[in-house]
Design a binder for these strands. Sequence first.
DNA 1: ATATTGCTTCATTTTGAATTGAAATCCATG
DNA 2: CATGGATTTCAATTCAAAATGAAGCAATAT
Lengths: 182, 182
Amino acid sequence: MTAKTLSPNLPAQASETSQPAGGHEAVLEFEEGIGALFGDLAELFGNPRSYGLIYGILFASREPLAMETIAERLSVSMGSVSMGLRRLEEFGAIERERGAGRGTALFSAKLEMRLLVGGFLRERVLPRIAATGTQVETLTSLLPSLPPEERKISTQRLERLSRWHSRAKSILPFIEKLLGGG
Amino acid sequence: MTAKTLSPNLPAQASETSQPAGGHEAVLEFEEGIGALFGDLAELFGNPRSYGLIYGILFASREPLAMETIAERLSVSMGSVSMGLRRLEEFGAIERERGAGRGTALFSAKLEMRLLVGGFLRERVLPRIAATGTQVETLTSLLPSLPPEERKISTQRLERLSRWHSRAKSILPFIEKLLGGG
DNA sequence: ATATTGCTTCATTTTGAATTGAAATCCATG
DNA sequence: CATGGATTTCAATTCAAAATGAAGCAATAT
């Protein structure tokens, strides 16, 4: 973590000379693999790939990592890493450790999938489901102004939607528990 | 469905004059609202918004709709609608009805959420989960080449990942059942 | 206090996914 | 079995989401 504080932001293309010592090629390959795995999963559910990459590299790493290290390994800007770390922290999926008497903060993954999944459900899915509730209400208030021949069928469809909505809402905690890996 | 076959592809900005008769403004607003709702949900899980819009308009509609009608109402090109309909059909969420003795095919939504959710899980999630399995295997084969001090912890993390993976795989059917709305 | 280093923010740029649109294909009908 | 409309395909384009990076802010060290 010494020196090299110039260019606070550049993507830093994998400086070949900065590994601890011993040049353990395979360690990087391993980390990259785990990163890719989480990156793919993140993408699948509509999250930026980079968030997955960041979580992955932390998940794979034996020790907590500094922002700069993460930026270097992933070849992305500090800005991106900062954003991603914040989001992951909101999800409750990583931990920030502001080492006492120390400039740089260190980050580590909380290993329980439960937290990652839960964070996603809480931060992304729940708000969306709530919004769906509002939308259903709005649509319901529209029913009276529909022409009679439409009204009946529209009411039925809306009811179906409404039932599904309450169901989905009440079931989220179970999903979280199931997918958390018990 | 008669006439107006010129311009087979243009986005067709909501021709104000082509409603059946009676000018039921509210019906369109209702359809649009349902469309938006499904559009948002589609987006949430990383699907193109337009797929949701298409499903939504079909879900709201009393009668089956032709491609051209859908394209007009959503103001998108026939190409997009064609793509979207195909995907939704693969999901098993809509039905194509090639009316006997008739040029144009008609589409209608299957109303059971079960099918929509199931289709998404089957077509999108399952393949991705399978890929994750492969990735875990690949990474496992990498373990021996890691330096000893890394090997132990990496093995543990991979095991954790592997456990989560099998669990997720075996639990998908339950999720489908739960979210299907019983 | 002040300088220095670490981190965040956000206007701009980039990038890749979704959409378009025109050509190719399909398929019912005369 | 030829025609014409309906549908699909896919290269090119568009556009929104993500990444960049420089300026601003905060924390730490001097």
